[in-house]
Computed example of a mutant assay.
Amino acid sequence: MSVVALLSVAPVIEDSMASEVAAAVEALDAFDVAYETNPMGTVIEADDIDTLLAAVGAAHEAVDADRVSTLLKIDDKRAQDRRAREKVDAVERKLGRPAKRER
């Protein structure tokens, strides 16, 4: 089984959030998960929901702020074992090109 999630963890502050976001991303390294950070969050892939939730909890706790905002969206497709990259590949096949464009 593969569980894919979109995670966004950020301190509620006016200044740059980069160092605290980096701490959250770095916390994921302690877990058996794959991840990719993008401008809107971090996509995480784990073999099971328990591992995913433990990693998310650690990322949330890693942010040192008086107030932390965490958004989590989970795709737990239980009938099939599909990896995150396969989802992107399927969209790219339909597009007939990479699902990315530079400005």
Rank of each mutant, 00 (worst) to 15 (best):
M1L: 10
M1V: 10
M1K: 06
M1W: 09
S2H: 13
V3T: 06
V3M: 06
A5G: 07
L6S: 10
S8D: 04
P11L: 03
V12K: 02
I13W: 00
D15G: 09
S16V: 04
M17C: 04
M17A: 11
S19F: 04
E20W: 01
E20N: 04
V21G: 00
A22M: 08
A22P: 13
A22W: 10
A24I: 03
E26H: 08
A27E: 07
A30W: 00
D32A: 09
D32T: 06
D32H: 08
A34F: 15
A34C: 06
Y35M: 02
E36H: 12
E36D: 11
T37L: 11
P39R: 13
M40D: 02
M40C: 07
T42Q: 03
I44R: 02
E45H: 05
A46G: 03
D47C: 05
D48F: 08
I49R: 06
I49G: 00
L52W: 10
L53I: 04
L53T: 01
L53E: 01
G57H: 01
G57C: 01
A58Q: 05
A58L: 02
A58H: 06
A59I: 08
A59H: 08
A62S: 09
A62H: 03
A62C: 09
A62R: 03
A65K: 03
A65W: 01
D66W: 00
D66Q: 03
S69G: 03
T70W: 00
L71V: 12
L71W: 03
L72G: 11
L72D: 09
K73M: 14
I74L: 10
I74Y: 10
D76L: 08
R78C: 09
A79N: 12
Q80E: 15
Q80Y: 14
D81A: 15
R82F: 13
A84W: 14
R85M: 08
E86L: 11
E86M: 10
K87H: 15
K87D: 08
K87Q: 14
K87P: 06
K87S: 14
V88C: 09
V88P: 06
A90H: 12
R93K: 15
K94Y: 15
K94W: 14
K94H: 15
L95C: 11
R97Q: 15
P98W: 10
A99F: 13
K100F: 12
K100M: 09
R101H: 09
R101K: 13
E102T: 11
R103N: 09
R103M: 10
